[in-house]
Nucleic acid binder design. Structure first.
Lengths: 207, 207
DNA sequence: AATCCTTTGTGCTTTTTTTCCCAAGTCTTG
DNA sequence: CAAGACTTGGGAAAAAAAGCACAAAGGATT
């Protein structure tokens, strides 16, 4: 079967990291094998959906047994291209930028911040984690020189579009956007938005 | 037409906060009126989808003209129940907790942190923003006494489930979960997950 | 007041996503 | 080694979501 060739729906791709996360958790607990049924209970997706999602990429399980955890973990890492560590630029050295720069959960899951930028003279030059905060006007060339393809925007909404434009100019291809605003970027650039308030608002609807 | 009665798909509810966010932005820019077409360009959803989503709740626009921004904003705030300010508990006073406690973007969009908890003796008693960090073992009763129905979990993954259990015991009905793990809660409790790494991983697939 | 340009709300169609279901294969037990 | 208990992968059906397209109506212009 010619897996991988078909276009895989975005919604499926969005679930793979959650499968991977659950598998890693199981592995840490010392487990060797799991099943779509068990993952289903852990994650809240149906077991059929998990099996079908995986079937877009190949056959990873064994009938009657389930999935060998380490094997499936590695397969998913390869599919998602996180079988390596990606360097990232962080733009914005405020409270959120600090939290992100100090977060130790990136590295094991395929990411690492290697350049930090801010526009405030008071912050430029200061150390944040292992890195010195650089001025915004060096962003484009630094990102290009270091071949950084991923960036995190952690600046106020009003500044976010200008930052995105600079990042794209520097060759960044995917942006994790914490600013509560939509970004306008060329179609080949990926953007993932994180807006906690939007999440909260969609929950209060149900209260 | 008996709007509002039909069950509204979750996916529609998830888009409403984005519509509201865009409308507020337009209002700040001094705009009075907009159209599904303009919102479509700003947000990246089709104009038909925006109109259909809104039609679940009533008729807010005027043919030939579009939508009166302030009117639609207020309607959405009412629908989402953010025409008030919800008190929230924040659990976890680490870097992320600090960033959240100091974030000034909550209040205008319907939320406010009014109680902060941590388990580390070193942090308990310290001030964070306007609030003193309280010990975890006062969580349940404090949340119940203050009638807090929303909470943010900003603790390590390993501690998240226990925190969630306490929150639910205290009467919390919706949780914004920053811990990179699935939470197991009773079905009537809403959980919204924020996992930046999962977002990054779903983007690297395409690089 | 007629014409033209706009834009909504929605019935209908198409596409996407999820679920159902089972043949086929694996493992365990007696 | 036969029987029974599991579990996968995937075709087919069902359900959900998105998009199309247009009647109806507002407003501007002549």
């Amino acid at each position: 079967m010619s897996h991988t060739n078909h276009h895989v729906p975005t919604i499926v791709i969005g679930r793979l990291p959650l499968y991977l996360r659950a598998l890693t958790q199981l592995a840490v607990e010392g487990r060797r094998v799991t099943s779509s049924q068990e993952l289903s209970e852990k994650l809240g997706f149906s077991s059929a959906q998990i099996r079908k999602d995986l079937s877009y990429f190949g056959e990873f399980g064994k009938q009657g047994t389930g999935y060998e955890i380490e094997f499936l973990e590695n397969a998913l890492r390869e599919i998602l291209q996180v079988d390596r560590v990606w360097n990232m630029a962080l733009v914005g050295a405020g409270d959120l930028g600090h939290a992100l720069a100090n977060y130790d959960g990136f590295e094991l899951r395929g990411f690492r911040i290697t350049a930090i930028f801010d526009s405030a003279p008071a912050k430029i030059g200061a150390m944040l984690g292992n890195w010195r905060v650089l001025p915004m006007d060096t962003l484009r060339e630094t990102v290009r020189a270091q071949k950084i393809y991923l960036a995190i925007i952690a600046v106020p909404a009003a500044a976010a579009q200008a930052v995105a434009d600079e990042l794209v100019q520097g060759g960044v291809r995917a942006i994790l956007n914490y600013a509560p605003t939509t970004l306008s970027v060329p179609p080949q650039i990926k953007v993932f938005h994180i807006d906690p308030v939007a999440g909260l608002q969609s929950m209060t609807y149900y209260l």
